[in-house]
Amino acid sequence: MSTQYTAVIWNREKKRYDRYLAGLIGLFLLAFCGLTLALQPEITAETLIIRATGTTALLLLHLTLMIGPLCRIDPAFLPLLYNRRHLGVTTFFFGLIHGVFNLIQFHSLGNVNPLVSLFTANVHYGSLSNFPFQVLGFGALVILFLMAATSHDFWLKNLGPKAWKTLHMFVYLAYGLLVMHVLLGVAQAEHSPVAIGFLGMGVVTVISLHLAAAFFGQRGQFTAAAGEDFVEVCGLADIEDKRAKVCLIGKENIAIFKYDGKLAAVSNICKHQHGPLGEGKIVDGCITCPWHGYQYLPENGCSPPPFTEKVSTYELKLVGDRIFVNPRPHPEGTRVEPVEIPRKHE
């Protein structure tokens, strides 16, 4: 959270995450290089590096894109989301090595500037079968670079969450470009059914997960009619202790937390990266965002000092065991007295 910036925040969980990531990449590279060398012993070192780094980047991008929808479908995947940016930056670095080696091997032999050669070596821009697939890879790499370069919280804060999120949503364009880059590259050169089969499986998996998350991953959320002062949301028993119920009323996305025999409601949207606060837990008395661990006090929506983030708060009332919320937000950081739950309901 923002008091002062450091280069990279590493805590115990993040270090563990990165160790697993490095281990996974190492194993994959070993398997890939071993298999390639067994099948094609005549392959040159440059070609092996190009193929290994390109394949690793593609695999990592698939993992990165699968984490978001997996978390929406099942919160058990949330630990994967916690440090996704390291995964993204790693993806970019593998893509960069792949790109640089390609430029050296394929486009630096002549006396033309390698970048000019990249765009002009093949100019069948109007044809799908002969399309210069290298240019697609270049486009994707530019997007991955911009995302990796702006992945620090400094940029999130200073470009503004909206512009930042828009920039980072270009990853979907990068994904489309990369799929076509690999498909055309592989198909134009050798039509390898194994490579095309794996790529097809990856595309189907990523698309299905995102569609499933978009249409079925709305667990715990519902919409109540707008226009009333207080809207009935759910029963006391519907919320687990130290957890929340999320409701969408008009445009208000509200998380109602139950903790220590009390109820409090805040905006469901974390100030950091718009993470879903209502899918987090109360840890040490604070609402803790499941994405990156930003914390807020339930009664006033303020981050505990010295941090300065604030979210909106909402009025609640309890009638019998039914919870009602007023969807008109209080200004961010306004204290609202939590509703005490009578003993008979606890």
Binding site: T6, A7, A149, T150, H152
Partner: peptide, 21 residues
């Protein structure tokens, strides 16, 4: 961004790529 005052060298170097772009 006042929060960037007095931040370590590593952080400042990390800003370079995006600042260039």
């Amino acid at each position: 961004d006042p929060a960037a005052k007095g931040s370590p060298l590593g952080f400042r170097l990390l800003l370079l790529p995006a600042a260039t772009a």
